[in-house]
């Protein structure tokens, strides 16, 4: 694989609830290489956004432990001023909710220009405006000169999302974190935006973290995929392996719940992602949602096992997992270790 752009090591991001800190991101290690799209999937509340915010240094109240190396430099302990030099320039982020991510009192043009003013102060007024118009064009906004002077409330959700994307790619970042970039969009605009991200990657050699719960988007975009559950990475593999040979019960359950050709009944994962305070901190965190799997198949302290080069799976329960709607296979019994 290529050069390491981002290396997250043993990251723990905890929020204070009452008198205690609870880890929403619990000991996550991941790398993103240059010219690579790392997909992160998982249900709502699994810690995807918390992870992204940690990388961008956007948490105001969270406790962050571990290290995040960006081009070899640890950015967790970086002074604010240096971090601000990176944010919006070398790394940037597309936010989940387009309806609230723009300043309601600022013109669209000014909001995009701001990131240019901050990182390319030498640009002239005219150059800046031209660049902004070009960006609006790139993200497929019709009549960019007109939109330049409009305010967010005059644009539809999809248009606003594209403006946010324009802000994020304005300075051609080396690392782009896209948190559900297309959830609010129609499939056709989604396809257009994903093309844009692809282009950024191939032309600039940027690294991309693509967070989504749309498995179809991941299948189309990602080079590698990490599956998160309850603050942990439970499986990570290259995209082909993950979709064709998923191992972790959670990954398999997720894939099984997507409507597919000829599928009559969709798979439902029992229960819900527990609230942060109620996360099981010991043993396999997914165990309570697959109660039909015998408890002795879980590890006491589940770790990631490398089952083939680059393919990691947490806990040993995957070896014994089956869906309750399929007949219990004989090999489950034959497979038990001593």
């Amino acid at each position: 694989m290529g050069d390491k752009l981002l290396e997250i090591k043993n990251l723990i991001t905890s929020f204070r609830i009452g008198d205690h800190y609870y880890a929403a991101v619990d000991n996550v290690s991941l790398t993103v290489n240059k010219n690579e799209v790392l997909g992160i999937v998982g249900e709502s509340g699994s810690g995807k956004s918390a992870l992204a915010f940690s990388v961008m240094g956007l948490h105001t109240k969270a406790k962050i432990e571990g290290s995040i190396l960006f081009n070899g430099k640890d950015i967790v302990s970086l002074p604010k001023s240096e971090l601000n030099g990176l944010r919006g320039d070398d790394m940037s982020m597309i936010f989940q909710d387009p309806l609230t991510a723009l300043n309601p009192l600022m013109e669209i043009g000014a909001q995009i220009s701001e990131t240019l003013i901050l990182h390319r102060p030498q640009m002239s007024l005219k150059e800046r405006k031209d660049h902004v118009i070009e960006l609006l064009n790139m993200v497929g906004i019709p009549r960019p000169e007109y939109v330049y002077e409009q305010f967010p409330h005059e644009l539809s959700g999809g248009m606003r999302q594209r403006v946010i994307i324009a802000i994020a790619i304005a300075n051609r970042p080396e690392l782009l974190i896209a948190d559900e970039p297309t959830t609010a969009l129609d499939v056709t605009i989604q396809a257009q935006i994903l093309d844009l991200v692809r282009k950024l990657k191939s032309e600039m050699g940027s690294g991309v973290i693509l967070i989504t719960h749309d498995l179809g988007v991941v299948a189309e975009m990602a080079d590698r995929v990490a599956v998160m559950y309850a603050g942990q990475v439970v499986e990570i593999a290259d995209v082909q392996t993950l979709f064709n040979n998923p191992k972790h019960p959670y990954t398999r359950s997720l894939l099984n719940s997507v409507p597919a050709e000829g599928q009559d009944k969709l798979h439902v994962i029992q229960g819900i992602v527990p609230a942060l305070q109620n996360l099981p901190r010991e043993g396999c965190r997914f165990a309570e949602r697959i109660p039909w799997i015998e408890s002795n198949t879980h590890e006491k302290d589940p770790v990631l096992h490398e089952i083939s080069p680059g393919h990691f799976v947490r806990c040993t329960c995957y070896k014994h997992f089956y869906f309750p709607e399929e007949p219990k296979e004989a090999k489950v019994y034959g497979n038990t270790r001593g």
Partner: peptide, 21 residues
């Protein structure tokens, strides 16, 4: 509000975030 986070993510300093946003 989320747009404040957007401003921080652009690399705006805390004083700019307050004054402008």
């Amino acid at each position: 509000r989320d747009f404040v986070i957007t401003a921080r993510a652009k690399g705006a300093s805390e004083s700019r975030v307050y004054n402008r946003h």
